[in-house]
Design a protein around this nucleic acid. Sequence first.
RNA 1: GCCCCCAUCGUCUAGUGGCCAAGGACUCCGCCCUUUCAAGGCGGCAACAGGGAUUCGAAUUCCCUUGGGGGCACCA
Length: 489
Amino acid sequence: MSDTVRVRFAPSPTGHLHIGGARTAIYNWAFARHHGGSFILRIDDTDKERSTDENTQAILSAMRWLGLDWDEGPDAGGEFGPYSQALRKGIYDQALNELKLAGNTYPCFCDSALLEAKRETARAAKKYSGYDRTCRNIPAHESEKRIAAEEPHVWRIKTPLDRGDIIIDDVIRGQVTFPLSAMDDFVLVRTDTSPTYMFATVVDDWHMGITHIIRGDDHLSNTPRQVIVFEALGAKAPVFAHMGLIFGPDGKRLSKRHGATSVESYREMGYLPEALLNYLALLGWSLDEDNVFDRDTLVRRFELSRVSKNPAVWDIGKLEWMNGVYLREMTAEEFISKVLPLLQDAGLIAGDQASHSSDWLLELAPLVSERIKRLDEVVEMVAFLFTDDLVIDERSFDAVLAKEGASDALEAVASALNEVEMTPEAVEEAMREVHGKLELKPKLVFQATRVAVTGSTVSPPLFESIVLLGRERALKRVWAAVDSIKKRR
RNA sequence: GCCCCCAUCGUCUAGUGGCCAAGGACUCCGCCCUUUCAAGGCGGCAACAGGGAUUCGAAUUCCCUUGGGGGCACCA
C-alpha cells in the first residue's frame, strides 16, 4: 500500500453526537489505527442556522468519552486545516475557480420557483426530475454579461455527457453501477456564493488527502455525484465503504421517537464508555470468537471486509448486558470512582462522611457491581446503608415479617449480633446458630433479618450488609422491626 | 414516479458450492448453585422471505417476486 491511510469523521454540529454517528466515528477511527494512518475530525458546519459551538464542544467531549482520539481536528490542528467548513470559504472559492478554468462548471440563472415547477411536471409525467440543463447552453459571452449585470445565479457541475455509467467499487458492497442518465447538473455553489454539501465535502476530502470514506448507507446514492466532482477537479476519488444504518425496533431509521439517541444520554443513563464502544462496534462488525473485546482488540482486528451490509437494529437489552459485563470486570477502585459522584448527587454521602471511609466503600463495591446493569442503579441499591430512618417496603413486610416466628427470630438475631465480631463470616456463623436453636427455617431467619436491616427482600448479601451497616445501626433496625411487627398485631 | 442498497433464529451475527438435519451472542424458558437479588454452570425454544434457474450438490451463484431502507433540494 503506497498511500498512508487518511480517514475522516465529519459530524454536523446541529445536535449532539448521535449513536449512528458515533459508530461511524468508531469504524473510521479503528480503521485508521489498524493501518497506522490518520483519523481526522472535521466539523461540517456549513448550515449556519442550526450549527452551534456548544454542539461542537458536546460532540468532541462525547468522542473523547468514548475513548476516540484524532490526529487532526479543530482543536488538534494539522497541516490541512482549518477543520471547520465555515472557515474554509476561500478554499471553496478557489476550487470553483479551478472548475471554471477547466470548463467543468457553468452559471445557472433559473430561479427556485421555476425549477420547482419543472420538477413537478417531470414527476407527473413519470420522467427523470433532474435539472434539464437549460442554462448549460447559454453562450459564454452572454452569461458573462448577465453575471456582470449582477443577475442572481448558482454554479452547476457540467456532468460529462459522454462519460459512461459511474461504477463504484465499494469495499463493503462490491461494485455498484449508477447510470449516467440519472445524473443531473447539480448545484455546487449557491446564489449567496456558499458551497453546497456535495461540493464542500468533496473539496475537503480532496484537499485533506482522504483515502477512504467510511460512512452510512444513506450516502451511497450521493456517491456518484461526488465522484463526478472529484473527476471535474482532476482528483482521484477515494475508496468508498458504505455500511448499513442503525434502525429502531420498528425497522425505521433510529430517531428520537425510539428513545435516547445521543451518546451523551447514554453516559447520563449510567452506561460505561467501554461498553458502549464495544456494543456499537458489534453493530455491523463481528469477531468469530468473541462478543466482548477491548479497544486494542478492536483496533488490531478491525477490517472493512468484515463489516456487514445489512442494517442493524438497536437493541438496548444487549447493550445493558454488555454494560453489566464491563461493570463486573471493574476493580473496586474503578467502580467507586465512577459511583462516588452519583452517591454525592443523590445526597447519600455528604452527611455521615466519617463512617464512609474509602475502605468501607471498597468493601461495598463488589457487592453491588455484580448486581447492576447501569451505574445509576447503585443509588437505590445502597440507599439503605446511608439513611437513618429506614422505611420497610410494604410487600416485603407482608411476605416475611408478617410470618409466624419472624419476631422471635429477630429477637434471637439481635442478641446474637450483640456479641459477635463484626466480620461477615462471624455474623453468618452466629446467625446459623440462631436458626438451629430456635428450630426455625433458616430462610425465615435470614429473610426476616434482611427485611429488617435493608428494608426489602431484595438486597446485597446479608452478612456483608450487616457488617457495613455496623453493629449499632443493625441492632437498632432489628429492634425497630420487632416493634412494628407487634404494632401490626 | 425514477435510481440505488439490503434480505440467515425476536435481535446482533458466523457462514463465500459439499465440513450446515445451519454455529455463536443477547433475549426468553427450564434445571443446578443458593438466605434474597444477581452472577455463574448446564440444558432448551427459535432462522436460510417466496419462486424459478445453474450444478452431481446451494444459505452460499444468476433471474424474478415480495418486503424493508436510502437517495432524487440553492439540507447535511
